[in-house]
Amino acid sequence: MKNERKKVLLIDMDDGRRETRIKLLNGAGYEVDVRKDFQAAERIDDEGEYDLVILALHFHPGEAASYSDELSKRNPGLPILLLTDYGVFVPRGTLSKGMESGSPMSLMKEVAKMLAGSSHIKEVPAAK
């Protein structure tokens, strides 16, 4: 039986780091597709075909939050990682949904460890 590579969608506006992240994920055996902004990802609308979506936030946290909320509504079981300079997070509610749906938490931890050097994934705190 052929072992299929996990498919990862990386949405990353940071030209300086994007190629490094792609090489890192490819080197670990993942098939990586890239979108350079949230608008491109929304136009193509194929996120549900991936095993994991990674959003590199950088200077656009508002756009990323809106996009990840919409993505979660359209694809409730899709694992999403939010990559920042301060760590790896998941959209609010994702971890509890992942536990219920059998979402691939080990994949999320493996990728988080690679990208940020830690396997600890934090959930975005509730708004105050």
Rank of each mutant, 00 (worst) to 15 (best):
F38C: 08
Q39C: 01
D51P: 05
I44P: 04
A28E: 11
E31S: 03
L25A: 04
N26V: 00
E47W: 09
V53D: 08
A41K: 02
N26Y: 00
F38Y: 11
D51M: 05
E31D: 02
A41Q: 02
K36M: 09
R43G: 07
I54T: 09
E42T: 13
K36A: 07
D46H: 14
L25R: 02
I54Y: 10
V32G: 05
Y50L: 11
Y50D: 08
V32W: 06
A40Y: 03
L52Y: 07
V34E: 12
F38P: 00
G48I: 13
K36T: 10
F38D: 04
G48P: 12
A41R: 02
K36S: 07
D33I: 07
R43I: 15
K36Q: 10
R43Q: 14
D33N: 09
V32D: 06
G27T: 01
G29Y: 02
E47Y: 08
E42P: 03
D33P: 01
R35Y: 13
E49N: 14
A40G: 09
D45N: 13
I54M: 08
V53S: 05
L25V: 05
N26W: 00
R35S: 14
V53E: 07
G27E: 01
I44V: 15
Y50F: 15
G29E: 02
I54H: 09
Y50K: 11
Y50M: 12
E31T: 01
E31H: 03
D51V: 06
G27V: 01
V34M: 11
D37K: 01
D45T: 07
R35D: 14
K36I: 06
Y50N: 11
E31G: 00
E42M: 13
G27F: 01
G29Q: 01
L52I: 07
V32N: 05
L52Q: 07
V32E: 06
R43W: 12
